[in-house]
């Protein structure tokens, strides 16, 4: 996209002070803006998603509350924009994401590990057997949760664990 401030043309000095790469700068600002707005929205880590709320719908609702676009979120999570509708859908299962991706999402949304664990457990309790989702058994999800914890520790996000 071309930076075009057509009306009321900028002065020479202003042009000199514009970023060398406006698109790159705008992306950096989007990333910071997403983190800032979500951090202000949830000063304390979120430990409970609410009764009967799917993971995806909680993400979608929080994004709207923070006045963020899908692109803001995609930039904040280092993901392609096309993946955001999938994350925000009711069918999204956190354990289908890699622990690293999930940790990024939890850090951005200030989501406590307890909330994710509770979501996993409630899903397990509803299931008729140990199969949580196709291809993921309870033990695999347990391993995923442990790896997720390590990812959070590596990001010095202790406040999302303890």
């Amino acid at each position: 996209m071309k930076l075009n401030i057509s009306t009321n043309a900028p002065t020479e000095n202003e042009v000199l002070e514009y970023p060398e790469n406006p698109e790159e700068f705008a992306l950096q600002v989007r990333k910071k803006l997403a983190a800032l707005l979500l951090n202000r929205l949830h000063a304390q880590p979120v430990r409970d998603l609410g009764v009967g709320v799917s993971f995806g719908s909680w993400i979608a609702l929080t994004r709207e509350q923070a006045h963020l676009t899908e692109l803001d979120l995609a930039v904040g999570l280092n993901l392609p924009e096309a993946s955001i509708p999938q994350i925000c859908s009711d069918d999204f299962r956190p354990w289908t994401a890699t622990p690293s991706q999930m940790a990024d999402l939890m850090v951005l949304f200030r989501l406590h590990l307890d909330a994710v664990t509770a979501f996993v457990n409630s899903h397990q309790a509803r299931g008729s057997n140990t199969e949580i989702t196709s291809g993921s058994t309870a033990s695999q999800v347990g391993t995923w949760l442990r790896e997720l914890r390590e990812e959070l520790l590596a990001r010095t996000s202790e406040d999302l664990i303890c």
Partner: peptide, 16 residues
Amino acid sequence: AYDEWFLQITALLHAY
């Protein structure tokens, strides 16, 4: 339009 506007405001804030 939002993306265009965002690009403009960030460039202006950079200059400011």
